[in-house]
């Protein structure tokens, strides 16, 4: 089967530094795929290349939206990438702090709705219907990540874990078929991580593919269907969680020399 996301020989240079070196990554429908590697391995840069924030130096990023023609993402603007159905969250949370939680999610629906200035001023029935739909749908997404009680709070007043979940909710609002999560569990306590685990699995079960960067090995090993390991911009291994756990190169590069402590 054709993978949803097929990245071939992706290369990204910053000045003289090669942050990503001919990286191949595939994500298939219904999978949770993890991208792991030590700090500075180029994982977030990889995300930024795919989502159009950076323009890759070389390589191909091919997206296969279900039921549509294959699309090359190289050089596309970030908003166009999102329109293709690829949504992301950020490692260092980038919510809209002075907007309410509900509004944050409503912003996510921007690219799936189309009220124009005329509609905004005259509020014709169509616009009103759309607005109602935005509110209702956003709220239902908030319920899914269990943030509905905070709907009218400012995003900046949320606790850390809730902010991470809000980022996921906001990404879900763009109606993606694939979700890129950049360290969703960072800074969470074990209880929150467990909830996140359930949330991600639930999203997968609803038919979305997920590509995630994560440092919490327990989480990665428990939910991933497939894992890519990156170090110094190069892929050093790939496989199922069991295979990765046994891979000596991974253990050396990522988990350190001392296996017992991993």
């Amino acid at each position: 089967m054709e993978p949803l996301l097929n990245v071939q020989k992706l290369t990204m240079d910053f000045g003289g530094i090669r942050a990503i070196d001919r990286l191949d990554v595939q994500v298939h429908a219904g999978q949770i795929v993890a991208l792991i590697g030590p700090n500075g391995a180029g994982k977030t840069t990889f995300f930024n290349c795919i989502t159009g924030i950076y323009k890759p130096t070389a390589g191909h990023i091919l997206l296969q939206p279900p039921g549509k023609k294959q699309k090359r993402l190289n050089g596309l603007k970030p908003n166009k990438v999102t329109e293709q159905g690829l949504a992301r969250t950020f490692q260092n949370i980038r919510l809209f702090p002075n907007m309410t939680v509900l509004e944050n999610v409503m912003i996510g629906m921007h690219c799936r709705t189309n009220a124009k200035i005329f509609g905004a001023i005259f509020r014709n029935p169509q616009t009103r219907k759309e607005e109602q739909y935005i509110v209702d749908h956003s709220y239902s997404i908030l319920k899914k990540v269990r943030l509905q009680t905070f709907a009218n709070e400012y995003a900046k007043n949320l606790p850390y874990g809730a902010q991470r979940r809000l980022e996921i909710a906001r990404a879900l609002a763009t109606d993606p078929f694939m979700l890129l999560l950049d360290e969703p569990a960072a800074g969470m306590n074990p209880q929150e991580t467990l909830e996140l685990d359930n949330l991600i699995t639930q999203i997968r079960d609803e038919g979305l593919a997920i590509l995630l960067i994560e440092h919490d090995m327990k989480l990665v090993m428990s939910i991933s269907d497939y894992i890519f390991v990156v170090d110094y911009g190069k892929k050093i291994a790939e496989g199922t969680p069991e295979e990765i756990a046994q891979n000596p190169a991974v253990i050396k590069a990522y988990l350190g020399e001392d296996v017992e402590h991993a």
Binding site: T51, G52, I53, K77, P78, N79, T82, E83, A87, R88, F90, R94, L95, F96, P97, N98, M99, E103, I107, G108, H110, C111, R112, R170, A173, T174
Partner: peptide, 17 residues
Amino acid sequence: FALREDEIACQAMGIDK
């Protein structure tokens, strides 16, 4: 409003900056 708050996140949400 979102654009004022965070341009990059805005674009990632599919807003044409």
